[in-house]
Write a protein that binds this DNA or RNA. Structure first.
Lengths: 202, 202, 202, 202
DNA sequence: AGGTAATCGAGACGGTACGTCCAGTCTTTGT
DNA sequence: ACAAAGACTGGACGTACCGTCTCGATTACCT
């Protein structure tokens, strides 16, 4: 076979160390104060090695997200039978996660990175939306099958509205209070149209 | 009074030129590649003059947003009597605005800036959410009064869900299609709870 | 007049500090291990300031030579009436100067710099040869006028032979001993041609 | 026997290729821009192979000189019976050699290398002075024996004065003209002392 | 009208980080 | 064991900006 190994094999453990150092820097300093020098030093690596793996700051951050060094944290939505309560619990779990300053800083840094780079944006979408939407979809679809939710529910719309609202709150430094979460759930579950009020329209 | 004017008066027109140059740079290069040097040169100003008005990069960007050099574009929601149609029109208008690459780049840059700086975040919230929420509230409250919408509608929740979803789409480079907008409106207007289906539950 | 001062005036004292730091580095580390970073730090200057004054390492070294931070040390040849003794004293003075390791390192570094760069070579010639040749010429011409030396003496040839021999010795790490100096003077004063032996040929 | 051959034998032809590549780089780029990477690539060798033969850049250059890849060019001084003419021819041959830019660059690079490294200086002396002095000595001694030159001629002094003067000219980029060479020979053959003028001093 | 003082464009200052290049070492597969 | 290939740490390169400071040259108010 022609693709035999030539030269020293690239050190996977160094790569891990770089990603970990990046995550720490990201949480500590934010995206645009990231210093490749500092990351390399913290990882015990040469600067060139960082650049060998990742061609730019944004690619590095993107990989950091994708490899899960920035946890999306919210892989599954519990299933207690009561779908609204499950979603509330999930959103509160998300809110609790963001209540940790370090986590908040990390995700904000990723947001900044995604805003600056198409590449990071793609990874961000892939990791954050896809994962969360999958989790939500799994739970919502079950509820739809049981007749607890409308058959025409657009999972994608619900997922993006919820995630979007949470990230927006994170961005503008408004902690997502229980009140806010309840308002969100009321809107999404009940709808706002007058005809959607149970017992009305009969 | 003691704060009488001494020395040369600060040139308001230079300040305008700085803000305009900042907006252009922001759209062209994004937040973390902003260069005060370039801004000053483009504005025909000295660097010191920039710093005399704004103490830092983030303060400059914040002011840029607040002064409306970054337009929120969506000051009012039309009132045709049909509230759902009005919201659809408003969201489509927003989507059209973002379809212009320059506008999209500009708002993404502001997003990045807000992610990096509490100060910018505050101004961003003040300008973007407040303005849009006010516009939505004005329209929604009218509809509530006419009995077209539920009395318990949480305007804030609706506004943040809609804005959040739109910004999230911007962030992850998914253009907000009509389909997406319709899904969003269906969710928000109809709700997803099975009991919210009109004519069901009888 | 149109050449009015624009911007802050360049700091002459910083320039001096840079040249001094360069000389120290040159003596300590030699030419190709010169580090602009270290020079800047030692001079308490930013790297950019070094590059503002001198576009390259070689230009910096050249200026260092020309400004006399690398002393040619041998400005004048004494005049005791006895020209051969005066030259011997001058050569011994040169040898003593080179016996100091720091001085030797410094001149060797300049030699290396001159070898690598036309620009430095020009300055080196201007400063070292010109100065020494002038000193030698002044002394030799006097002796010629007094009839102590041949009228057809080529000062330039003598100067370059002496300086060349001394620098060559420095280069190959052969200390210029008294024996060597005497051999040199014998050759130059007496000549090697058999017909130049006094009292021979009769 | 204990020094039996173990493993693959070191390739002499690779070593030659390395030295040739070094000479080419030296002539093209000078000493301090030498790149081991480039040399290895040009020689079709691995970097480690270079370091297996030569422990450092300066040792490599030193060896390059010693192996004659940097030609001293002037192995013998012709013997036509007329010693002054022979020396003139030899010096002119040297001058012609240096007139080739590539040769000049090569020797200047070696000079720089010698200035920076004791090791290279030793090899330089060994190869350049020793070889030339031997050539000059062979010729001068013959002339002394024939009574053409003074019996007390210091060959070493003559050799170093001539070589030193030529190298100094190379260093300061002053081509050694016929005029210069003649001045040098006049000085060395005739001497400068008034008493050395033939027919005078009686 | 003349003095005083803050502002202006310009650009040098000490620094920090960039992304590239190279030195010298280490590791892998192949000969 | 040596060879080519190439990844490794470490460190210097020359450039670009940062935010501050210093120029001479404007304005403007205040005697």
């Amino acid at each position: 076979m022609s693709d035999s190994q030539r030269g020293r094999t690239r050190s996977e453990s160094t790569r891990q160390a770089i990603l970990e150092a990046t995550r720490d820097e990201l949480a500590a300093s934010g995206y645009d104060k990231l210093s490749i020098d500092r990351i390399a030093t913290a990882a015990g690596a040469g600067k060139q090695t960082v650049y060998r793996w990742y061609r730019s700051k944004s690619e590095l951050v993107a990989e950091c997200i994708l490899e899960g060094y920035v946890p999306s944290k919210t892989a599954v939505v519990a299933d207690s039978g009561e779908v609204r309560g499950d979603l509330r619990a999930w959103l509160r779990g998300f809110a609790d996660h963001l209540a940790q300053t370090e986590n908040a800083a990390l995700i904000r840094a990723c947001t900044a990175a995604a805003a600056e780079s198409d590449e990071v944006a793609a990874k961000f979408y892939e990791r954050v939306t896809a994962a969360n939407e999958a989790a939500l979809t799994a739970r919502l679809d079950g509820a739809v099958r049981l007749g607890q939710l409308r058959a025409d529910t657009s999972t994608a719309a619900v997922a993006e509205a919820l995630i979007g609202a949470m990230l927006y709150r994170l961005l503008v430094r408004q902690a997502p209070t229980d009140e806010f979460i309840n308002g969100l759930l009321d809107t999404v579950f009940n709808g706002i149209d007058a005809s959607s009020v149970p017992g009305v329209g009969r």
